[in-house]
Write a protein that binds this DNA or RNA. Structure first.
Length: 426
RNA sequence: GGAGAGGUGGCUGAGUGGUCGAAAGCGGCGGAUUGCUAAUCCGUUAAGGAUGUCAACAUCCUUCGAGGGUUCAAAUCCCUCCCUCUCCGCCA
């Protein structure tokens, strides 16, 4: 959520930054804000007098005045009149406030000053590459779903019976490989200073609103109809909300968490895309990195988080590149985002495997996550950062392709061998 | 699902109609003191919003789970809802 004060005081700046992501008109919001403050001034003035009367009556009665005296009676009358007046203003004010809040919740975050301008993913900027991608000759590399099915470790067809399309069942070494990847990623990130959490993955509406998935993107998440609960689309949601409405001590920052969780996405509107394989499923596993930091350090912590995610790809020896998203391609809550894209030889393409964002105070403001510096007055909002470290299914896809051998076996990356106790998948 | 208890400031926890934004303790901050490694004493310390020639500040409003009601006046009384805890039942 953006700061209404910032919008009020600097509307042209905010609008200009928002225009870089799409089309936004702040005027309705400014009008409502103006009305709201006028109403509030009026109401609180009446309220002050009403409070005064309340005290006065109490004092007089305590001092021995007759409650039935005309003096007291007329004060009571005035109190009643004020109550009626206030009673008329209150609903108006409440209505405007809720309209204001609704509008504010639909505005995305402002892109950072350093985010490249652009309209779509075409305008994203490549920052760096790592590793040597293998350019396939004569389509000799099988796509990961084919090699996976050949090895008997992935099954899509039967998963349709159990659930729907876009689900997978991992079998034998496939299941073991998934677990090995999760354990490997967690071990590395814990060593890098992140504290593991294993949060609930059924999430209430308030939590999804705080992290920015709601109200705008309701159709992206699965909802449990009988309850106010949704299936978590990413661990970013529960982790953010672990600290909702809290005032943290500045000394406790930064808070670094990693989490393995299953993630659930409806993938509405992507019906034709990535229909095969592990790339776009309704349910997938992810190890998430998450930081709550002091605003002064968020830029630096963002770079560290990206490096922590990259370290996994490097240790797995998977070629990748780092892309900085342009303003038009930025997610709703993000102010600056780096995507890590892993090389998928069968597709002859890089595919997103991690997305690392700095949300600054956007989520913190929605969720009321503040911190206090001891000795200083007041509180500030923390900055929140998140990134995948990594998407596990896509990592498996990358391994099945990049480590594929001509005899249709797949080598196990060295870093995983201690976890799998297997050198080759056959 | 049945029965009961409860939701108060950073934390613990008092407070059943008026000067209560709220005792006390802990913690934090500032200071004093003491040679015994930390203790003692004093002071101070909620958040959000509006307004003011808003930086330090001042004034006002809101907030004791949420919403409504009674009253001149509600943390306190009434109603509805939500949540937490304990016991029983069921169950991984």
């Amino acid at each position: 959520m953006l700061d209404i004060k910032q919008i009020r005081e600097n509307p042209s700046f905010v609008e200009e930054r928002l225009q870089s992501r799409g089309s936004y008109d702040l005027q309705p919001l400014l009008t409502l804000d103006q009305q709201q403050r006028e109403l509030e001034a009026k109401r609180s003035h009446l309220q002050a007098r009403s409070n005064e009367i309340g005290k006065l009556v109490g004092q007089k009665i305590k001092a021995g005045s007759d409650p039935q005296s005309t003096e007291i009676q007329s004060l009571r009358q005035e109190g009643n009149d004020l109550k009626n007046e206030i009673g008329e203003l209150e609903p108006q004010e409440r209505e405007i406030k809720s309209q204001l809040a609704d509008l504010l919740l639909t505005l995305p975050n402002l892109p950072s000053e350093s985010t490249p301008l652009g309209n779509s993913e075409e305008d994203n900027v490549e920052v760096r590459r790592w590793g040597d991608e293998y350019i396939p000759q004569n389509s000799d590399i099988l796509p990961h779903w084919e090699i996976g099915e050949h090895l008997g470790i992935l099954n899509f067809e039967r998963s349709v019976k159990v659930a729907q399309s876009r689900f997978v069942t991992l079998i034998g070494s496939g299941a073991a490989l998934e677990r090995a990847l999760i354990q490997f990623m967690l071990d590395r990130q814990i060593a890098a200073g992140y504290t593991e959490v294993l949060p609930p993955i059924l999430i209430n509406t308030q939590s999804l609103t705080a992290s920015g998935q709601l109200p705008k993107f309701a159709e992206e998440s699965f909802k449990c109809a009988a309850d106010d609960l949704w299936l978590s689309p990413t661990a970013e949601v529960p982790i953010t909300n672990l600290y909702r409405e809290e005032i943290l001590a500045a000394e406790d920052l930064p808070i670094n968490h990693c989490a393995y969780t299953p993630c659930f996405r409806r993938e509405a509107g992507s019906y034709g895309r990535d229909t095969r394989g592990l790339i776009r499923l309704h349910q997938f596993n992810k190890v998430e990195l998450y930081k709550l930091v002091h605003p002064d350090t968020s830029e630096h912590e963002h770079q560290k988080l990206v490096a922590n995610a990259e370290a996994i790809l490097q240790e797995l020896q998977l070629p990748y590149r780092v892309i900085e998203l342009c303003t038009g391609d930025l997610g709703f809550s993000a102010t600056k985002t780096y995507d890590l894209e892993v090389w998928l030889p069968s597709a002859n393409k890089y595919r997103e495997i991690s997305s690392c964002s700095n949300c600054r105070d956007f989520q913190a403001r929605r969720g009321g996550i503040r911190f206090k510096e001891s000795g200083k007055k007041g509180t500030q909002f923390v900055h929140t950062l998140n990134g995948s470290g990594l998407a596990v299914g896509r990592t498996m896809a990358a391994i099945l392709e990049n480590y594929q051998q001509p005899d249709k076996t797949v080598r196990v990356p060295e870093a995983l061998q201690p976890y799998l106790r297997q050198e080759v998948l056959t």
